[in-house]
């Protein structure tokens, strides 16, 4: 069963299948606050390539080709899986990425 509703995915971020015509490639994560968004971007900077064209919507690319889109002003986080991700693997892959995002948020927590 695909996670079509808000679903706890092991960490502080939740996962929800987003609107798209791409068969489970686009996943929305739960909202983070502005400060968490900044931490997330910083936490991902080592492993992900920053390909943002604008400050108002940041786009980071995962080594496997997946993208993470972060809206700094609202804390919206979206996972865009690479189109070559096999259909049957898409939800598992999204869960794996959201797990990495949650870990990045946790390890950058202010002391």
């Amino acid at each position: 069963m695909l996670a079509t509703r808000e679903d706890d995915s092991g960490g502080c971020l939740t996962l929800r299948l987003a609107h798209s015509c791409y068969r489970h490639l686009i996943w929305d994560c739960g909202l983070v606050n502005e400060e968490q968004a900044a931490r997330l971007l910083s936490g991902l900077s080592r492993r992900y390539a920053d390909e943002s064209r604008f400050a108002w919507v940041r786009e980071l690319t995962h080594p496997d080709g997946h993208s993470i889109v972060v809206v700094p002003r609202t804390g919206r986080v979206q996972i865009r899986l690479h189109y070559l991700t096999p259909h049957g693997e898409r939800e598992r892959c999204a869960r794996q990425v959201v797990g990495e995002l949650s870990a990045a948020l946790r390890c950058c927590e202010p002391v």
């Binding site: 919507v57 609202t74 919206r76």
Partner: peptide, 11 residues
């Protein structure tokens, strides 16, 4: 519904 819109305009 896109994040791009949300970033440009807001929720």
């Amino acid at each position: 519904l896109s994040p791009e819109w949300e970033g440009l305009v807001g929720p």
